[in-house]
Design a protein around this nucleic acid. Structure first.
Lengths: 204, 204, 204, 204
DNA sequence: TATTAATCGAGACGGTACGTCGCGTCTTGCC
DNA sequence: GGCAAGACGCGACGTACCGTCTCGATTAATA
């Protein structure tokens, strides 16, 4: 098992109490703007530092890599609504459609689109980042869906032997695939159709 | 509109007849090995050239970018089975499970896994590559599924009003998501469960 | 003309009464050690501060530059014997040889050697330091030689029309050159030979 | 003894045949200009590269350090006249004065002055550079003086038991000291006085 | 079969960005 | 208010690769 001693990364760990608030904000803002303007791959640490009027060292002091910076940008973007339970009006189909339509709107935003794509790309070869993303975003996101489905099972709208983990994947998987591969545009109609079909698979 | 005359990219187009066979093979082999060993991002053109004992120019003469080289590697990897129709024993569920189990096996191979991840990453910011991947791999791959489902509709195993495009996504989407985000391991059991649930959504 | 009011350099002048004695000593000691260990060029302000267990600001509060610190180190090294008149036994040749042999011994010491080299290097592009060195070390050093020569003129051992400034240079110049360019090792024999030859040039 | 295998410095040695003539010239010119404009210490490799319109790597490929570049600049500056014998009109005093006056003129040139100072500074902590300077400049420079003195010994103008090595130092040492420490300005009159006094020391 | 032009291996070139080091200043408690 | 500690903006470092550009030395399609 890995030791969890602090400051095990060679350099002496910096003191977070002394951290400059304005530098942190400026860096996140600069990164946020740049990822939209030029995309993750063409965004450089030097450009972030220059735009934030910050020394490069200040970035490297607090984040180990470009991905880590963008992870924080991303967390701040989605962070507000994360962990909140899904709406529960009693009508599962309607609730899912509402959520999925909102997600469509979110992923149609350039800022969200580009940032999310940058991540999906990055976690393919940065397993540590993948772990963090999974823990901080994917798992909580899945969990709120499962919670709503559990409630639907209790209400008799979903058959009780259904694998809820798989059920969630049935909704989010196709959505993600269409977005990722740009197979077809993400629309509210698509959200509705997808939910309708998944409901067929789940009904008692 | 863009001219589609050949050799419109400044340099005179090279003559494919004079192309060195050994150089091409060596380059593809080197790239194939390197992508497994160090991953796409850390694989450099110089490393490919060095390992293939080839001048860098020879790579740039025939491929416009690193992605293009790896696209060829990938095409050679999957190329054999592409476009072949899915098995049709009359039992849709069994056929889908067989195919999906095979796909599980394929994506468990390190070579395939790393190469496919490299692509998924790369097409997030290289739209031209995305277009080519879509055209040469994704669309044909989807089409064979749809063909099998059409046959199932005719056989009365699938309800006739089902959106087949969406139906295919219902199978491949969850699969891709689990692979991409490493949410959970890809197993034959998972393939079976996924098909079972999709079958619920499609039956008349 | 430049104002010589104190505190004309922007910052408010620090109060020397409150100066920490241990900090000053620790800084000079650390600098002294480091210049021997790694040389002037590779010695950093941060290293001095770290070894002296002192904040960087404490160094900058009392010295304007690295050179200034080392100037103090140097002054402490040579300071004891500076300004003292040369021995005068009546035998000029013997006296000069004794002094030059002592200087050979001094410049063979690693501490002295490295520090002196650091200075010679530094004053090539730091004219202010050059001025200070000239005033505090070179001129007084030359003066004691001239004084001894004047006494020898009076004693009739040196011809009265000799340019004493040049005469001193005739002794110290070759010595310094050999030391600086490491043309040949500095030995007592060399000191004797040099004095002998200079005596030829000076005798009536 | 050290192995003299080529390419013993880690990286594979570059092929000098392929060296770009324009790059070399541009680098030396840029360095030459910059050393006069800002001095050695404030001259950066980046500035040289920028002014020469050259990649930094091209500098590092052929020179190991800033000093090495300036060594080449210096060699080109003095190189023309190096190794040429001193004039021999039969009148040693006149010949030495002529040469020393020329040297005064040379070291009064800003280009020569700054470059030479940079070197004198640098060789204090770069012993390898010191070795090269000694071998390529100092020793040959001393040798031509010794040759002229030998001729004077034969002509009976210099006593035959004189240590010629030391005799040369007696001329060049004071000169160098005065230049290095800026004790007093270098003039033709000084050159004459110095030679006159040395002649006293050497005459039979 | 000899000619000859294109491709080949090799690697130097002008660049951009990297991640690190040290500068000199600024900020934060402690004494 | 000086002090130890160290974060900050900054600029240069020396390295890694990029994609382009020569160099001879093979080749392989014509003449």
């Amino acid at each position: 098992m890995k030791e969890n001693t602090p400051a095990d990364d060679g350099r002496r760990a910096p003191n977070p109490k002394r951290r400059s608030v304005r530098a942190e904000r400026a860096i996140l803002d600069a990164a946020s703007e740049l990822i939209v303007e030029v995309g993750f791959a063409r965004m450089t640490m030097e450009a972030i530092a220059a735009r934030a009027r910050v020394g490069k060292q200040t970035i490297y002091r607090w984040w180990p890599s470009k991905s880590a910076v963008v992870l924080d940008v991303f967390t701040h973007l989605t962070g507000e609504g994360a962990g909140e339970p899904l709406p529960d009006t009693g009508d599962l189909s309607a609730d899912l459609k509402a959520v999925l339509r909102a997600t469509v709107d979110e992923f149609t935003t350039p800022a969200m689109d580009r940032t999310a794509r940058a991540f999906t790309a990055e976690i393919q070869h940065d397993t540590e980042l993948a772990r963090q993303i999974g823990e901080r975003l994917v798992t909580p996101g899945t969990e709120v869906y499962k919670e709503r489905l559990r409630s639907a099972v209790d209400a008799g709208q979903v058959r009780s032997d259904a694998d809820l983990e798989l059920a969630v994947e049935l909704i989010t998987g196709p959505f993600q695939k269409r977005w990722l591969l740009r197979t077809a545009p993400l629309t509210h109609a698509y959200a509705d159709d997808l939910v309708d079909m998944v409901m067929c698979a789940l009904r008692p």
